[in-house]
């Protein structure tokens, strides 16, 4: 789903790097937003709401919270504006996500 030829634009892309989505190996360009890399790989569902509804890319400016994911064990990363790096471990987030080390403790409601 990458655009290879465009009548006006030339895309400046970073190095091609490997990353993981829910454990599965994928490729993207370093520096592009994580959500764009996932999108190019055909991943549309990034997050599930507390009620279990699927959520995807929406605003692309870091504003709407629809694209929050777990990145390298950290929840609530705004993947539409966070640059992709090699070897990132990116996971679908459910609800508000859990901070590492917080699993066993009670969460505030």
């Amino acid at each position: 789903m990458r655009i290879s030829e465009h009548p006006i634009l030339k895309f400046r892309r970073g190095h091609r790097v490997r990353f993981y989505f829910d454990g599965q190996e994928m490729k993207g360009f370093e520096g592009e937003p994580i959500a764009a890399a996932l999108h190019a790989e055909g991943v549309r569902v990034l997050h599930y709401s507390e009620a279990g509804r699927p959520r995807g890319f929406f605003c692309a400016i870091g504003n709407c919270s629809s694209c929050l994911m777990m990145v390298d064990s950290q929840p609530n990363v705004r993947t539409c504006i966070t640059p992709l790096r090699a070897e990132m471990d990116i996971r679908t987030q459910r609800g508000r996500g859990v901070l590492s080390g917080e699993q066993s403790e009670d969460r505030e409601s």
Binding site: I3, A40, G56
Partner: peptide, 19 residues
Amino acid sequence: PGVYGAGAVQTLMNVHGVK
């Protein structure tokens, strides 16, 4: 997923080269 703002569609397509 699949419902986007117009700005997001433009960003994906024109900045990042992703359909």
